[in-house]
Simulated scan of single mutants.
Amino acid sequence: MSWELLLGLCALLLLVVQLLRFLRADGDLTLMWAEWQGRRPEWELTDMVVWVTGASSGIGEELAYQLSKLGVSLVLSARRVDELERVKRKCLENGNLKGKDILVLPLDLTNTSSHEVATKAVLQEFGKIDILVNNGGRSQRSLFVDTSLDVYKELIDLNYLGTVSLTKCVLPHMIERKQGKIVTVNSLMGILSVSLASGYCASKHALRGFFNGLRSELGAYPGITISNICPGPVQSNIVKNALTEEVMKSVGNDGDQSYKMATSRCVRLMLISMANDLKEVWISDHPFLLLAYLGQYMPTLTWWLSSKLGKRRIENFRSGMDADFSYFKPLKKKHD
């Protein structure tokens, strides 16, 4: 057998292996490799101070629970103090922390004047901030033609400017120490776009552009990692709390979430990305993950598919169903 033929067969085998890995994947292939061969969160994240915004529910809440088992010091922030206290109690019950290891710090991301004071409070309590997880934000379920401009301002103020403001307060501390991780929970909608969420998509696209630009500015500080985490649909209250046509009006119900990724699985993959200092990760089941890849390499086909799916999405929403449930349920995968 010639060397050329052998190399060709090896290349074909590698392609087949990668295709099989992709069909079974619930994250991008770099993330899947890190899960298999990379550093473990249990090794890398212990003894760190981690500040989590949006910690009162959903991904932020689950992140607090999993981090509490790793021996970190936690700062839990959101607007609802009672919910933060509930999360703290559960962390203490099921994790490896004591009361002194968890700081409940109420925070409104839209009140940017309070962010400097909050940052000083964390530093006074723990002396350092190793990881800032920018997780706070809201989604949207409404058509642009029906929606007040105030909704778009709220989404930008909360999802984008609030996150940028808090990052600006924390970053000088990390620069001084020449180390730290800034992890932002973005969305696949920061890469793609869908109907009923134009304002949400705009805010997430803005976050991705900002943090990619910030990363390039921090080239002199290799110890500071900027990570964009882009989940697809995850079981949480994000739909229930999503803004609709007016700022004071939200969806108010969760819909059927059985087709979405379990929050525990999403957070585990987030921790793996943090342990391995991955710059951007995509966390999603198919077909959302496939659409993300298609969007990068076959944009015209992706937009054609999006227009077809968008019509059905609007029909589902108007009939009172979850926007995506009816046509993505058959492709759902279950995770432990």
Rank of each mutant, 00 (worst) to 15 (best):
D47M: 03
S73N: 06
R40H: 15
V75W: 01
S56I: 03
E35N: 09
W43H: 13
K69G: 02
S57M: 07
Y65D: 07
T46E: 14
T30E: 15
P41Q: 05
W33T: 05
L31G: 01
S73V: 01
A34K: 10
Q66S: 02
G60W: 12
E35T: 05
S56E: 04
S56D: 10
W36G: 01
Y65E: 08
I59F: 10
W33I: 02
R40K: 15
W33S: 08
K69C: 04
G60C: 08
S57P: 00
E61Q: 13
S57L: 06
E42K: 12
R39V: 11
R39D: 11
G71D: 06
M48D: 09
E35D: 11
W36L: 10
S57W: 10
L70K: 00
S73L: 04
L45H: 06
L74S: 04
Q37C: 13
E61T: 01
E42H: 12
E35I: 05
V75A: 03
P41W: 02
M32L: 15
Q37M: 14
S57F: 11
L67A: 06
D47E: 14
T53E: 01
W43L: 13
V52N: 09
Y65R: 10
G71P: 04
Q66G: 07
Y65F: 15
E35M: 14
Q37I: 09
R39L: 14
V52H: 07
R40D: 15
T30W: 13
V49E: 09
E42W: 13
G58D: 13
E62G: 06
K69I: 01
A34R: 12
V72D: 04
